[in-house]
Design a protein around this nucleic acid. Sequence first.
DNA 1: CGGTATCCTTTCGGATACTG
DNA 2: CAGTATCCGAAAGGATACCG
Lengths: 109, 109
Amino acid sequence: MEYLSKKWAIMILLELYKNDQSWKRFSTIRKAMKEVTSKILSERLKELEVEGLVINKIDASAFPVKSEYKLTEMGIELVEVIKEIKVWALKWKIDNCVCKNQDCRVCIL
Amino acid sequence: MEYLSKKWAIMILLELYKNDQSWKRFSTIRKAMKEVTSKILSERLKELEVEGLVINKIDASAFPVKSEYKLTEMGIELVEVIKEIKVWALKWKIDNCVCKNQDCRVCIL
DNA sequence: CGGTATCCTTTCGGATACTG
DNA sequence: CAGTATCCGAAAGGATACCG
């Protein structure tokens, strides 16, 4: 809870889980989550990396530097559990129905 | 996440889940969770009640007033999901092993 | 007993600017 | 591009005191 309850932490995990769980660039994540500033995104990614939920691959050979992130197996399995919370919410929280937004980060689950 | 990520929220749910999920008095919960001030406990219980995870029964006929709380069915089912997070943590977080403290609020799960 | 009210500190995170 | 540095306001929550 210590690191997961921080603002945007879970949303970032969901963003990395989205589609194929492959490597995603810093700027790509930022564009997908426009409300998150680069400071917060950077902080959260570092925390999640320290906790082993995310791995970071940096290619400094070229300019500009290319930095990519993806979920670890541990991180993927956590998202699977979070999906259970989604199931719970769909059952009990009526207003939490599937929306029409094709890119909705919640409804992708 | 909005209300669950607040400090002590999940711990309070676990405390109410503990043993038989029966009515528990405000002071009983406080004694079990000595780190939580009555202000915070009161705030969290109210939030969880608004969200339908907890119900409160007040008996004002006598003095002092007797106020009791317990999980709703919805709240119990959420704790069941939280137990899955515990399973995840036991698998991946090595330092998160079952401790010897008989009253540990985490290991009761 | 079961809270509120008040105050005060600490933390969080948003905005903006800057850099290798 | 991928961050970091700085500043700042808002909000969370702890300590303490008080009340019906």
